[in-house]
Design a protein around this nucleic acid. Structure first.
Lengths: 236, 236
DNA sequence: CGTCACATTGATGTTTATCAATCTTTGTGG
DNA sequence: CCACAAAGATTGATAAACATCAATGTGACG
C-alpha cells in the first residue's frame, strides 16, 4: 500500500451509518440515503460558500472538518461553528456566514427542499432534525460562555476538550491530533494568534498538555477538563 | 382606570396571533391554540427553572422578557439567550442553563410531548419550528461575534439595536425602553457592570444615545447601527 | 425616612492586543 | 534531493482595554 500520507483516523463516515448511529430508524435512514446526492472534496482553508449566498444545500461531513465563519469590518474573523465527521450543515434562510474547510474534507451534498419532502412521510425525521439543532445550540452556548466569561487559557483548553470529544468516535485517548492552526484557534476563541501561542506554552508549562507536532498529549483529562470547565454532557 | 403602573407597550401577545404572524397556517395555529395550556406570571429576576432540571415544557412569552443563563464556578454569569414577546423557549434534553425573567413576564406553558404529536398531522409545523430554531441560531452567532471580536462599546450598542428591533413590533422608534440593569447587560455582553456603565457614558458623550431614566433616545439609528456593526437581516 | 438595589466614579492591576522580528515547518519546482 | 518560498509558530517590547477593589451617589418603595 502506498498510503503513508493517509491520516490516521481519517476514514470516511458513511451517511447511512451515521444517521442510524444518531438515532434515526433504519427506514428513514434508508430513505435519505436513496436521495440524489453528490460527493465533493474541499481543500483546506478555501471558502466554498461565500457569506450571503443562500442555498438549498445540506452538507454532510464524511471526513475532515467544516466551519462557519464570519468576517467583520476590520479584518477580524470569527469562527461560529464546527462540523466534524458525521455532522451536517443545514442552510439558513439568510446566511450571514461563509463556509470553509479547516482541513481537507469530503462532503456529501443533499438538497434541502428534497429532504423536506420526506417530512410529510416521516414525522420522526422532524424530531431528529430538531434534536440535532438543539445539540448545536448547546455547543453554541458553550462557546458563548467561553468567549464571554473565561480567560484565554480556559478557552483554548475547552476547545481542545471539545475537539477530542467530537472528533474521536469513542472516549478521548491520551493522544489526539490538533487539526487547527493557532490563527484558527484564535478565530474560534476570540483572541489573537499571538496570545493563543502563549496560552499553549502556558498549558504545556503547567503539564496539562504536551505537544508533538500537530499531536496533543493529555495525561490527565480530569485536570484539563477542570481547567476548561468542560462537561461533556452537552455533546450527547 | 387604575393602570398608571402599566408599562407602555407591555400589552400581552396572543398565542394564536403570534403563530399566524410568524407564518404558520390558520389551521395549525388553531390546533396549537386548542392544546391544554396554562398561563403563569413570573417575577423579575427570579429563576423559575434551575439548570439541570430537564422538562417537557415549552414556554411562550406573552409579555416581558425571558432569559437563559449559565452560572459558572467563580460567580461569573453569562446570559445565553433572550426571548421577547411572541417568542418561545423549547426545552433541551440536557439543559445546562437556567431560566429567569428579565422583567415581570407572562408566560404560556405547553407540553412539548403533546406539541410533538401534532407533527404527525402537520408536517408544516416541523418546518416552522426549524425556521424558528435557525433564527435563534443566527442570533446566537451574532452574540458570539459580539463577545469574540468586538470591543465593549460595539457590544453594548449591538444589544441596544437588537433590543429595539426585537421588542418593538415595528421599526424602532427614536425612543425605547431599556429593560436591562447594567449588571444584566454585563452578563449578556461578557463584561463587568462597571465597564458597562463607562460604555454608556461614552455612548452618550459621543451623542449616539441619550438616557432618560430607563429610556434610551436614539437620534441617528444609522450611526448607532454602524458603531454596533448591526444588520437587522438575521432577525427576519 | 431608612433600606436596598442599582448606578456612578476613581485608583490600580491584570489580561490581552498590537507591532515587529526571528525561527521552524511544510510544500514546491528544478 | 536540494533550494527556495510561503505559511505558521515563537518571542519580546509596548500600549490599550478591561477587571478589580472600594467608595459614594441616587432613585424606588415599604
Amino acid at each position: 500500500m502506498s498510503g503513508h500520507h493517509r491520516q490516521v483516523g481519517a476514514a470516511s463516515i458513511d451517511l447511512f451509518d451515521a444517521l442510524v448511529t444518531s438515532g434515526l430508524s433504519l427506514k428513514v435512514a434508508h430513505a435519505i440515503d436513496k436521495l440524489p446526492q453528490r460527493s465533493i472534496n474541499i481543500d483546506s482553508r478555501r471558502p466554498f460558500r461565500e457569506p450571503g449566498s443562500g442555498g438549498d444545500e445540506v452538507y454532510f461531513v464524511r471526513s475532515g472538518i467544516l466551519s462557519k465563519y464570519w468576517s467583520g469590518y476590520g479584518g477580524r474573523r470569527q469562527i461560529l461553528d464546527l462540523r466534524f465527521p458525521g455532522e451536517s450543515v443545514w442552510p439558513d434562510d439568510f446566511p450571514d456566514y461563509g463556509l470553509q474547510a479547516i482541513v481537507k474534507s469530503e462532503v456529501i451534498v443533499l438538497q434541502k427542499s428534497v429532504l423536506e419532502t420526506l417530512l410529510d412521510e416521516f414525522p420522526e425525521l422532524a424530531i431528529f432534525c430538531m434534536t440535532a439543532a438543539q445539540r448545536f445550540e448547546a455547543i453554541n452556548h458553550q462557546w458563548l460562555v467561553n468567549c464571554g466569561s473565561k480567560g484565554g487559557t480556559a478557552r483554548v483548553a475547552h476547545l481542545l476538550c471539545e475537539t477530542a470529544f467530537r472528533s474521536g468516535n469513542a472516549y478521548p485517548t491520551s493522544r489526539f491530533s490538533n487539526p487547527f492552526t493557532q490563527q484558527q484557534i484564535a478565530d474560534i476563541t476570540g483572541q489573537t494568534n499571538v496570545n493563543v501561542n502563549r496560552v499553549f506554552r502556558e498549558l504545556e508549562r503547567e503539564g496539562l498538555i504536551q505537544r508533538q507536532g500537530k499531536d496533543i498529549l493529555v495525561d490527565d483529562w480530569t485536570e484539563l477538563k477542570r481547567v476548561a470547565n468542560f462537561r461533556a454532557d452537552y455533546l450527547d
